[in-house]
C-alpha cells in the first residue's frame, strides 16, 4: 500500500534522529552543512516534503507571543585597541555604511567585537556555530592580531580588507592604487616635479602592493622616468624614529612633494626643514572626512561597508547552485579633497 513518506523514514534512512532531520530541512545553523546536504538528498530520494501549513501551525501557539524576527547580519570587529572599537573613526564609518545598507535590504546588523572586551578569539568558532545570523562580515581586522581558526564555509561571509584571514570569500576594500595614480596626477598638474611616496611597510603588505602598483604605473607613464625610490616606515616605528629616516630620504632625492598613507605626515614634514625655499607639498592617501589643511584622498569607507553588506545580501539570497565559483574582489574608489598643503608651483 502506498503511504506518504514521513520525517521518521528520512531519519531512519539517513541514520540520524528525526529532530536532526527537522532542523536540517529548516536549515538550522546547529546542523553542519555536510549533514544538511546529506539529509536533503535523502529526503529528496524518499520523496519527503515538509508540510508548510503544518509547520506554520506548529510555529504559532496561542500562549506564545507572535514573533516575526528580522534576519540578522553579524559584523565581527577586531582591532588592536578593541575597548575603543566604536570610537575609532575608521570602523565607525565602515559600520555606518554597513548599517544603512542592511536596513535598506531588510536586515538587522549586529556588531560583535572579538577581543578582550567582547568574545575571545577561541570562543569565536562556537559562537558562530550557535548564531542564528544569516551572514557574517569580517570587518577590517588588524593584521597584527592572531586570526581565530574558523571554518568560514559554514555561513555566508564577506570580508572587508583582512587579506590575512584565510577565508575564500568575497573581499571589499578601498582602491589604494587609484588613490596613488590620482594624487600623482593632481600633483603633476600643479607643477610638482619630484614626487616621493612614503608608506608604512605593514600597510603595504596588507594591501598586497596596491600603493606600489599605482606608484610604478604613474612613474612609467612619465615621459622621462625619474626613478625615485619610495620610503617604507619600518613596522612598529614611532614618529621620533621615523623623522631622521624621512629627513635623510628627502635630502637625498630633493623631493618637492610627498604622498603618504599616514595622517601624521603633515606634522612630521613641518618639523623637517625642506631643502628648497618653498615648503614641501604634502598629500595624504587616506585622509579623514573632517575639514583640514591637508589635501588628499578620502577613502569612502561608508561605501565600502555598504558594498560588503550588498555582496553579503546577494550571497545569502543566491541558492547554492546560483553562486558563481571564482572569488571576487571589489574596490571602491576614494574621493579627492583639495587643501592648503599643496600649491601651484612656478
Amino acid at each position: 500500500m502506498f503511504t506518504q513518506a514521513t520525517i521518521k523514514d528520512v531519519a531512519r534512512a539517513a541514520g540520524v534522529h528525526f529532530t536532526t532531520v527537522s532542523m536540517a530541512l529548516r536549515a538550522h545553523p546547529a546542523i553542519a552543512i555536510k549533514t544538511r546536504l546529506r539529509i536533503e538528498s535523502v529526503a529528496k530520494l524518499i520523496g519527503y516534503q515538509r508540510n508548510e501549513v503544518f509547520s506554520a501551525l506548529s510555529r504559532q501557539r496561542k500562549d506564545r507571543p507572535h514573533r516575526n524576527p528580522i534576519p540578522t547580519l553579524l559584523y565581527l570587529g577586531r582591532a588592536k585597541d578593541d575597548r575603543h572599537f566604536f570610537a575609532i573613526d575608521h570602523h565607525r564609518q565602515l559600520l555606518e555604511g554597513a548599517t544603512r545598507e542592511a536596513k535598506k535590504l531588510g536586515y538587522r546588523l549586529k556588531t560583535q567585537v572579538v577581543g578582550p572586551s567582547g568574545i575571545s578569539p577561541h570562543e569565536l568558532p562556537a559562537y558562530l556555530k550557535r548564531t542564528t545570523a544569516a551572514g557574517v562580515i569580517i570587518g577590517a581586522w588588524d593584521p597584527i592580531l592572531e586570526v581565530p581558526a574558523v571554518d568560514w564555509n559554514r555561513i555566508p561571509t564577506v570580508k572587508i580588507d583582512s587579506r590575512h584571514v584565510p577565508a575564500q570569500v568575497p573581499f571589499v576594500s578601498f582602491d589604494q592604487m587609484k588613490a596613488v595614480t590620482l594624487s600623482f596626477r593632481k600633483l603633476r598638474d600643479l607643477g610638482y616635479r619630484r614626487i616621493g611616496l612614503a608608506l608604512g611597510e605593514k600597510d603595504e603588505d596588507a594591501t598586497d602592493g596596491l600603493h606600489l602598483s599605482g606608484w610604478l604605473l604613474a612613474q612609467a607613464e612619465e615621459p622621462t622616468p625619474t626613478n625615485l625610490p619610495p620610503l617604507f616606515f619600518p613596522p612598529g616605528a614611532t614618529a621620533t624614529m621615523i623623522l631622521p629616516l624621512l629627513d635623510a630620504w628627502i635630502r637625498q632625492h630633493q623631493f618637492d612633494a610627498i604622498m603618504c598613507n599616514w595622517r601624521s605626515i603633515l606634522t612630521m614634514l613641518q618639523t623637517i626643514k625642506a631643502p628648497h625655499a618653498q615648503p614641501l607639498g604634502c598629500v595624504c592617501l587616506c585622509r579623514s572626512r573632517k575639514k583640514q589643511p591637508m589635501a588628499g584622498i578620502v577613502p569612502n569607507l561608508d561605501l565600502v561597508g555598504q558594498r560588503a553588506v550588498s555582496l553579503l545580501g546577494s550571497l545569502i539570497n543566491a541558492r547554492p547552485e546560483k553562486i558563481s565559483v571564482s572569488p571576487l574582489t571589489s574596490y571602491v574608489e576614494g574621493t579627492w579633497y583639495d587643501g592648503h598643503s599643496i600649491k601651484p608651483q612656478s
Binding site: 535598506k104 535590504l105 582602491d175 569612502n300 561605501l303 558594498r307 550588498s310 545580501g313 546577494s314 539570497n317 543566491a318 546560483k322 558563481s324 571564482s326 572569488p327 571576487l328 574582489t329 571589489s330 574596490y331 571602491v332 574608489e333 576614494g334 574621493t335
Partner: peptide
C-alpha cells in the same frame, strides 16, 4: 558576464537606482 548580470539584477531588485557615489570595480579572479 554572469557576474555583471547578477549585480545588475540585485541592484534592480533592491531599488538602488542612479550612479554610485564613487566608482566600484569588481575583479574576477
Amino acid at each position: 558576464g554572469r557576474r555583471a548580470v547578477e549585480q545588475v539584477v540585485t541592484l534592480m531588485q533592491t531599488n538602488q537606482l542612479g550612479l554610485p557615489p564613487a566608482a566600484v570595480c569588481t575583479y574576477v579572479a
